[in-house]
Design a protein around this nucleic acid. Sequence first.
DNA 1: CATGTAGGTTCAGTGAACGAACCTACGGTG
DNA 2: CACCGTAGGTTCGTTCACTGAACCTACATG
Lengths: 188, 188
Amino acid sequence: MLKVVTVEDMALGKDYVTQECSIARALEVVGERWTLLVVRDAIYGVRRYNDFLVHLGIPRAVLSARLRTLTEEGILDKRRYQESPPRDEYVVTERGAALWPALRALGQWGREYVDGSRLRIFRHADCGGDVEAYGTCAVCGTLVPVADVVMVPGPGLDSAPADPVSRALLRPKRLLEPLETDPAQPAH
Amino acid sequence: MLKVVTVEDMALGKDYVTQECSIARALEVVGERWTLLVVRDAIYGVRRYNDFLVHLGIPRAVLSARLRTLTEEGILDKRRYQESPPRDEYVVTERGAALWPALRALGQWGREYVDGSRLRIFRHADCGGDVEAYGTCAVCGTLVPVADVVMVPGPGLDSAPADPVSRALLRPKRLLEPLETDPAQPAH
DNA sequence: CATGTAGGTTCAGTGAACGAACCTACGGTG
DNA sequence: CACCGTAGGTTCGTTCACTGAACCTACATG
């Protein structure tokens, strides 16, 4: 029996088949459920498995799958930061950070047309101006690169969240820089 | 029997539960598979059920579901354009057109980091300048509103596609304006 | 040696996507 | 009138992905 290899063997229903479109190509990579939220957290500075887990409330199996494919796609970089016990962290790459304009635009739309309240405010680190709708600084007018964005909590944000990652994100922080969570209080 | 209504009754797994984040809010609305591609087509000027169907290659049941929820969400407007036989069209609203910056940013990322080839080129209708990475015009520098964008085929695009919608999209066209497909050739 | 923590994998159940078939309403043609 | 074509759907069985819970490994600590 001759087995002909066809397009259908291309694995899964992840691909938007004949779409000749860079939006579709992008969504093939980051369009699955949870994926863009993992990238968002990575840009916010989340790097560790458990921090993604508690902050996103994502099933472990799905988180493992997303971290693996994002690493394979070169959007995250998995690297060992201590040997004993072996611990890895996932650091966003340039390719991943380049998704920031898309995420910011989505967030802008969500705030304007879905939510209404101001949850997080993004400021230009150099001059303190607000980052506006299209990514420019309201004060100096320059197009603010993701590494020069400082995130501060907005008035609509819960000021005493349950999980330590959300609490750490209440402090003003520069994007891409690693998030420092409070050391867990000893049960004693 | 007392039936207590709980969070689990909230229908489906569509919601990113406790996410206090406008990106998550946006993705709750437009984050399902196919949804952003339907909005993209609507912004490109596609308005009719069958045009979405052949251009996207989407299962009919899924298309019906997406058109329904997008209409309910006020992103598309379903309206009757002829009475006999009854025919409806789906027109993108202001709320839907406001997704353009996010779609453009996603497409920009796809072109830079996934695909490489230039499939579609967006120009400022007023002056003919290219629309750049962050939505500004390369010539006059203004932030180009979606209604002033003209889409022309790029060098990477197939010049003789099979379906009539892709063929119609080869002609330069202004975004949001209705797409005019070739009348189907009579079989005779 | 028991307990805790980080970072996973495995598995059964469920909900969503898929593709094919079918249905309705109408217009045009012979 | 019978038949075909088209637009815009719905229905249905199968497959696939997401979910939540349980389990596993490696190491550190008391």
